[in-house]
Design a protein around this nucleic acid. Structure first.
Lengths: 244, 244
DNA sequence: CCAAAAGTGTTCCTAGTACACCCATGT
DNA sequence: ACATGGGTGTACTAGGAACACTTTTGG
């Protein structure tokens, strides 16, 4: 069953591309949008920074046929960052398949955008380094500021293009989806949520207008006020939680 | 060069999935949103209706590595419908890769949404039949009304899911992109544009309010008034053209 | 006391919605 | 003449943007 039966004339005789997943893992530190990059240890692009990713597992032997694409993305994140990846928000961006995007041969990559809230980031960051387990082929890894650092880098493969797609998607879905809540702790203040919006939009927002917007979210049942207040070094702020 | 060189330890030794493209080709006939389906002539799902599509060409022999994903989608459209596909609007929806989505083995499909304006549709429709060249493995093909007919069909593979994604994408991008202009002739009246909006949204819109909206588009330079008027069986209407 | 962020109030304007109404044309 | 879709007017409302202002904390 590794080859097709002869009846299916053009299906399995064709050469197949390799298929990978690549993940743009994004988080907000203070007021700064960051993306996790991994320094490649092997050719091609050895020494360059790249998005975490790897080959999709395909098992054609038994009745099993390997993992879903989402599972592949989560597995690669776990392998290369040590993150318990079950609770991470994942969103597929699409397929990147330019014939020459990988010098080794025809490789089609399924790109993902992943969002990490500050609480989970704590379970992974070790003083500046982003990773606990320095993975097999990942020589190094850390967070890069999207606004400043990453623009000056030459990324491996077409990962610049993938990253741009991830940021574009994030920006366009910021106002019409609940992605912002994935980048904020389980309970959060209006100011913290605003910082996430500002980091993604890359501009400061009017605090008063943003407050009223959040209050409307509460009216709509999208968020609810949580018990307690947060001491912020200034006047204590009410905390809210996202209602899924 | 069909196998990897031994140095790349985990890249090419792995079994690879087959990769296909599937295209939801959509058009608006009168006030009705339609999708082109093809009746499968072979197993699996022989006799079922399916989206046009096929395997991505990969050529690992020379320096050539085959076609882009977009090119594969256009080629399949051309092969199965006889459409000169250069001018068709194409938008990638994403990758569908559930392990069991194809009973023959692990097949990952890159899904597309394509839009056909009424003028080009004329070059393809032959009294009810959608196709000029009845393609190789396509026993039959025709337009199905999305609102009524297609809901009662059992589509092949996960094509229902792909079609739903296409329609969702279309609806969500209707107000924030220029997709509507891809479904209208090169010059169009406000009424014709409104019919496209109504077909996609599945509800009627207030003609007066829609008119003002289109007038704002003109103020923004998105569209321009075109010379002449259109006789519609009633009061002649101004015509506009989309400014790309 | 002062800086700084939380929180309140007000004004202006755009765009969506609903609905009444007139106009030009083919039949 | 009349039905039909083209085209105009108007009033209501929600929400974005700009900005002045008060409140409560830590230093």
């Amino acid at each position: 069953m590794t080859k097709a039966k002869p009846a299916a004339k053009h299906s399995y005789a064709y050469p197949r591309p390799a298929v990978t997943v690549d993940v743009a893992l994004v988080t907000v530190v203070d007021t700064d949008l960051k993306v996790l990059l991994i320094r490649r240890g092997e050719a091609p692009f050895a020494g360059s920074w790249a998005l975490p990713g790897g080959f999709v597992r395909v098992d054609e032997s038994g009745t099993q046929r390997g993992e879903t694409l989402d599972a592949a993305a989560r597995r690669e994140l776990a392998e290369e960052t040590g993150l318990a990846s079950d609770s991470i928000y994942l969103e597929q961006l699409g397929a990147f398949g330019a014939p020459l995007r990988d010098p080794r041969g025809r490789v089609i990559s399924i790109a993902y955008c992943a969002l990490l809230d500050p609480e989970l980031r704590g379970t992974l960051a070790v003083k500046g380094k982003a990773v606990l387990r320095a993975g097999t082929d990942a020589a190094d890894a850390r967070w890069f500021s999207v606004a400043e650092e990453v623009t000056r880098l030459e990324l491996a493969f077409d990962h610049r293009e993938i990253l741009d797609a991830a940021l574009l998607r994030l920006r366009s879905r910021l106002d019409t989806s609940t992605v912002a809540f994935e980048l904020v702790p389980p309970t959060f203040t209006i100011g913290e949520l605003r910082e996430v919006f500002e980091a993604i939009r890359g501009e400061s927002l009017d605090a008063a207008n943003f407050r009223r917007r959040v209050e409307r979210m509460q009216d709509d049942g999208l968020i609810a006020s949580a018990p307690g207040k947060r001491r912020t070094g200034t006047k204590p702020a009410k905390v809210y939680r996202f209602v899924r």
